[in-house]
């Protein structure tokens, strides 16, 4: 790897390729709705349907209520979406980063461009998806008369921790996945379990004590609980709880970055 620092590719900055990155994001959206009449509207309908279904099923049909009836009739729906929508981004980003090099193997082998463009494209396009979803969720909160208030400012910080965590882990797993395809399989299994070990679909205190302590180890737990606080109780997160996931995010970003930089040369040989 000693020769790598001399290589012209390393000097191409991501910025010079912003045209490619944004073009690729745009094309990804176009490709998704190519041949459809309503086009981009579908990226609004999908999350809208999701929010409506959860609201109808849990609040109206099943009459689910949170303990102490927090948030009233819509309480459970607010709770569910507050955790599930950011989780959706987390899972999508992780899954995308996992396969980002394998799927673009052909392109990487034949064209010379900064490799870091590929994870960046995955990141931006999933972020846009989440932004649309979040906007719909905020409209929904306004409509039911439960706006999040000032605590919404904290959302960006919590999201930053989540994104750092997902990016670091995704970059690490995505790089390893090129060499051992088991990693990709493992990740999809992991994500299934992970969702159920995070208090998203249930409330944490509903768990037996023993399981609660296990769930507390999950770095996504404090993140999701912070969302619950922001959207449901309209309070700022307890910052102390976020130190653990934030440190983990930093460590994973470093690990992922090192793995990517050290192995980016070998990735091409392996694909």
């Amino acid at each position: 790897m000693s020769s790598m620092s001399f290589h012209p590719v390393m000097f191409h900055s991501l910025w010079n390729y912003r045209g490619f990155v944004f073009g690729a994001v745009k094309r990804e959206f176009q490709a998704r709705y190519l041949g459809s009449l309503l086009g981009g509207l579908w990226s609004v309908f999908n999350p809208l349907a999701m929010i409506l279904v959860y609201t109808l099923v849990f609040s109206q049909l099943m009459g689910s209520r949170l303990p102490d009836n927090a948030g009233g009739v819509f309480g459970f729906s607010i709770y569910l979406c507050a955790g599930l929508l950011p989780w959706g981004w987390f899972a999508e980003l992780l899954a995308r980063l996992n396969t980002v090099f394998i799927e673009n193997g052909n392109l990487m082998k034949k064209a010379s461009f900064p490799r870091i463009c590929l994870p960046t494209i995955a990141f931006i396009s999933t972020a846009i998806h989440f932004a649309i979803t979040l906007a719909l969720y905020l409209v929904f909160l306004l409509l039911i008369g439960h706006p999040p208030g000032l605590a919404l400012l904290a959302l960006l910080l919590v999201l930053a921790v989540q994104v750092g965590f997902a990016t670091g882990l995704g970059l690490l797993l995505g790089t390893l996945n090129v060499f051992f395809r088991d990693v990709g399989q493992f990740t999809s299994v992991l994500l299934q379990f992970w969702l159920w070990f995070t208090p998203i679909i249930y409330v944490a205190n509903a768990l037996p004590r023993g399981v609660q302590s296990v769930v507390a180890f999950n770095p996504m737990t404090p993140i999701v609980e912070a969302y619950h606080g922001i959207f449901l109780q309209q309070v700022f997160p307890q910052w102390g709880t976020l130190i653990y996931p934030a440190i983990l995010a930093l460590v994973l970003l470093c690990l992922g970055g090192i793995a990517f930089l050290r192995l980016s040369g070998e990735i091409i040989d392996e694909l």
Partner: peptide, 26 residues
């Protein structure tokens, strides 16, 4: 290489150009 079959030639020309490091305006 890298031509996307479902996109038009014009769209693909943009993509190839961007892949070569040209900006969209260029």
């Amino acid at each position: 290489m890298g031509f996307h079959p479902d996109f038009t030639g014009r769209q693909n020309a943009y993509m190839s150009g961007q892949l070569l490091g040209y900006s969209t305006d260029e």
